[in-house]
């Protein structure tokens, strides 16, 4: 079976010119030179060489074995979240080269986790971090610099307590709150158009800033839930954007974190909260974390991941940032529950 010319990513004008001269399959063109093709079909010389590039077998995708992939993955360090339970569930932290979606009701801590990650990705390599930069795309206007400063100060403090050898002392001299702020790029997008063009522009941005290993979009849902009447168009635009992000994440080993809102689905008599943006969007991210309140405690659940078991962990948000539910408060909770049990009996 031959591959038809129309299945190449070419403009319809070029395709119809080729077809008019009888070139239906890629096999008909392969052996020609750009000059020949151009004179025979009347397409421009540049277009002709573009066509020939497309049918060139050298350019076809190549595979790697799973073993090579495993070795590549082993070289990528994850981004710690500072919540050890969540880190353990995710195998050391948020993995590089994946797209991650955080879903949750307002106030559950989606933005807090984003800010925390924006700081954590900058932890110097000698402390087990990545020493990288971060791009924060803010669509809701919730980026809160004061809060980021607080978290950055807490992380700097944490690292200075861990400092032991000479290398770490040297690193600590430059690892300051100011440095963290200067390594963070913030983009404000007001509507879906701006967000989509920003996403399309990311490859160029990453070429200029190769140190950026984390892209945060807080939130992907807000611009798309605002006056969007053509729902199929919305789904198509979103899936296209998600695909671009996934390609970017994989090819550049950059992590993309997106936040999503929750919406209500009516089911029979009752209703329940589900992540917004529709059923198809659910496939978009590689890892989906659901942040929710259960019994007045904050819980994070991995609801979709190809590499992790579905797990639920506790976390809390304190002045330092996104943290473990501390042992003391856990014990206190258990005690009060014990007391309750005693009281009840």
């Amino acid at each position: 079976m031959q591959r038809p010319v129309w299945s190449l990513p070419l403009s319809s004008a070029v395709i119809s010119k080729l077809n008019r001269r009888g070139y239906q399959c890629t096999a008909d063109i392969e052996h020609l030179t750009a000059g020949q093709l151009s004179t025979e079909t009347g397409v421009k010389e540049e277009e002709a060489s573009e066509v020939l590039d497309l049918v060139d077998h050298q350019r076809y995708p190549v595979s790697i074995t799973a073993l090579e992939l495993l070795q590549r993955e082993a070289e990528l360090k994850p981004i710690v979240t500072f919540c050890s339970e969540l880190d353990r569930a995710l195998g050391g932290g948020i993995p590089l080269g994946k797209t991650i979606e955080l879903c949750g009701v307002p106030g559950i801590g989606k933005t807090q986790l984003c800010l925390q990650l924006a700081v954590d990705v900058q932890i110097p390599e000698c402390f087990g971090g990545l020493g990288a930069q971060c791009l924060f795309i803010d669509t809701e206007g919730t980026f809160f610099l004061e809060r980021l400063r607080e978290m950055a100060a807490a992380v700097v403090r944490h690292c200075s307590l861990l400092t032991e050898d000479q290398e770490q002392q040297d690193a600590m001299r430059t690892f300051t709150v100011e440095k963290i702020l200067s390594n963070l790029f913030v983009v404000r997008c007001d509507d879906s158009m701006e967000l989509l063009s920003q996403i399309s522009d990311l490859p160029a941005f990453l070429s200029d800033h190769p140190e950026v290993r984390l892209i945060i979009i807080d939130s992907i849902a807000f611009p798309f839930r605002l006056h969007f009447e053509d729902l199929p168009l919305r789904t198509r635009l979103l899936l296209g954007a998600a695909h671009q992000l996934a390609a970017l994440a994989t090819t550049r080993n950059t992590t993309v974190v997106m936040t999503n809102q929750m919406t209500t689905r009516v089911q029979g008599e009752g209703s329940r909260l589900i992540p917004a943006l529709g059923e198809n969007w659910g496939h978009a991210a590689n890892i989906r974390l659901l942040l929710q309140w259960i019994d007045c405690k904050r819980m994070a659940t991995i609801i979709k991941s190809s590499s992790h078991m579905s797990t639920t962990v506790h976390y809390q948000i304190n002045t330092d940032g996104f943290r473990d539910l501390s042992e003391a408060s856990k014990r206190a909770k258990v005690q009060t529950e014990d007391q309750k049990a005693v009281g009840n009996s």
Binding site: V62, S63, T65, A66, H243, A246
Partner: peptide
Amino acid sequence: LQRIHVFQLFDVFSLL
């Protein structure tokens, strides 16, 4: 692991 060959493609044209 060496018997599993992985292609990572992100659009329909590279799939073709």
